[in-house]
């Protein structure tokens, strides 16, 4: 067992974990934050995407130990007292989800993308979300949602 100090959604925590504990399992099972899904478990689908020090990462391929000393933001961390985060709101408005399984990862990847590029073109959104697979929507509404959130200027 080893100790990890990770700031999760703005709150500093210290936990004793196995060195082999994956960040996604730390978030789900130790922190009880279950928005972050495991889809492929092979670094492909992006459903486990969270922000690590503000950059999108696939938490099925990061050790909790590697995140020690750093900040992690999950979908739960986007919640605001005044309602949904602008990217979440845009996904709702534009019907950017169907079953919703990919959505937490998709939203986090989009938040990461917009932090780097506040006004992406359609192509830049598609390339920026290359690491996130959706089996339902066919992507059009997801792209529309991300562009709507960007032009809303609040993301």
């Amino acid at each position: 067992m080893m100790r990890v100090d990770i700031t999760v959604n703005g709150r500093a925590r210290a936990d004793d974990v196995e060195a082999r504990l994956l960040l996604v399992h730390y978030l789900r099972d130790v922190c009880g934050l279950r928005a972050t899904n495991v889809g492929c478990d092979t670094t492909s689908c992006g459903s486990c995407t969270v922000l690590l020090d503000g950059a999108s990462v696939k938490s099925c391929t990061v050790l909790a130990a590697q995140a020690s000393g750093h900040e992690v933001t999950t979908l739960e961390g986007l919640n605001r007292s005044d309602g949904l985060h602008p990217v979440q709101e845009a996904f709702r408005q534009e019907h950017g989800l169907q079953c919703g399984f990919c959505t937490p990862g998709m939203v986090m990847a989009a938040v990461g993308l917009l932090a780097d590029n506040p006004d992406p073109s359609e192509d830049e959104v598609r390339e920026g979300l290359e690491g996130n697979f959706c089996r339902c929507t066919g992507y059009h509404n997801i792209v529309r949602a991300v562009r709507a959130a960007a032009s809303g200027g609040r993301a």
Partner: peptide
């Protein structure tokens, strides 16, 4: 390389 998440790590 890969995708944005992979390039971040």
């Amino acid at each position: 390389v890969g995708d944005p998440q992979i390039r971040h790590r």
